[in-house]
């Protein structure tokens, strides 16, 4: 039997580099155009607010950045299988490679540029959009421009403060510029800078107003600030995005973005009703974070108030957490 050793010299002579580059350029360009013009308008979370629009923009930019890389990998993979595959009867080894300065330099420079681009782009987007709708803690690094005031009225540039209160397993919303009135509905005026002050009365929750592109952890006794400005009218779904107990999945409700005048009427109406029926007087003074064991009207921390609790005893027994 005669063994024939074949070499792949003829294939190596083909202009593989230029051929690959040409195909890659066409595919990458097509993919990026499709992403930008066809896919971007449908990317989550939509364009209801400034923060949502920027998130949509960010996702599109990252997709446009990633698509050429993915296409290059897949193209090279496919090209290798088709062009450089072992032919029938080819039992020879591949050519040994001991290093290629051009390839190594291209790789290092290319990946460095990609990482630097992502770093700079991400930082600029966080800074330019006041945290991009994410909770920044009690002292935000990036603040949203707006006039702060103890009151709010339609037509002005005043920022609206909304305290978001989570508890197992529901949300409420408190409006300090309307006498500290509280509601189970999240109502927001359009074209108004909003500062959410997110907190919790029990465990850790996470306030996620999907269409607004706002997501901030709700920690007990912590004021977590997140900003947004709604630009279109519509409904908002509010969910908890932090596993907070067995009924976490049921912890959601809805909000609405309405005109500034409609919001003013709604807020004034709720404030008047809560004042009339005595609820406003029954609520604690507005504070950016609460210690729910302290009830001002009872004048003492709850565990010290004996005799007013139910048959089960205090709801914060000494030594909590304990097992029954």
């Amino acid at each position: 039997m005669t063994t024939t050793t074949t070499t792949t010299e003829p294939a190596a002579e083909a202009p593989h580099g230029r051929r690959l580059f040409g195909i890659w350029l066409i595919l990458a360009l097509a993919a990026d155009l499709a992403i930008w013009f066809a896919w971007k308008p449908h990317l989550p979370p939509g364009d209801m607010s400034d923060s949502a629009r920027h998130q949509q923009f960010d996702i599109a930019v990252l997709a446009v950045s990633a698509a050429p890389v993915i296409i290059f990998v897949l193209l090279y993979f496919s090209y290798s299988i088709v062009v450089w595959r072992a032919r029938p009867g080819d039992d020879g080894d591949g050519e040994p490679i001991y290093g290629n300065t051009k390839v190594q330099a291209t790789w290092i420079i290319g990946t460095t540029l990609i990482v630097l681009w992502l770093f700079v782009f991400g930082t600029v987007e966080l800074a330019g959009t006041a945290g991009a709708g994410a909770g920044e803690g009690p002292s935000p690094v990036w603040k949203l421009a707006g006039v702060t005031s103890a009151t709010w009225s339609p037509g002005g540039k005043t920022m609206l403060d909304v305290q978001v209160i989570g508890q197992q397993w529901t949300w409420t919303f408190r409006y300090p510029q309307f006498g500290g009135m509280e509601s189970t509905e999240l109502m927001l005026p359009v074209n108004t800078p909003v500062a959410f002050h997110v907190t919790s009365l029990d465990v850790i929750h996470s306030f996620w107003a999907y269409q607004l592109g706002v997501k901030a952890d709700a920690n007990p006794q912590v004021d977590n600030v997140a900003y947004t400005t709604a630009r279109t009218l519509g409904s908002v779904t509010v969910r908890c995005s932090e596993l907070c107990g067995i009924w976490h999945g049921a912890m959601f409700n809805y909000g609405h973005v309405v005109t500034q005048s409609a919001f003013g009427s709604w807020a004034a109406g709720v404030q008047a009703r809560e004042k009339t029926d005595g609820l406003l007087a029954a609520l604690p003074p507005f504070a950016l974070a609460y210690d729910p064991t302290v009830i001002p009207q009872l004048g003492a921390a709850l565990p010290k108030v004996d005799g007013i609790t139910g048959a089960a005893g205090y709801y914060y027994p000494p030594g909590d957490p304990v097992t029954p």
Binding site: T172, E182, T184, E274, L279, I308, Y315
Partner: peptide, 15 residues
């Protein structure tokens, strides 16, 4: 059952 304070007194309101 006996009484227990609400964690959020907002729910004292009937809605």
């Amino acid at each position: 059952d006996g009484c227990t304070p609400l964690r959020n007194n907002f729910f004292s309101q009937v809605q």
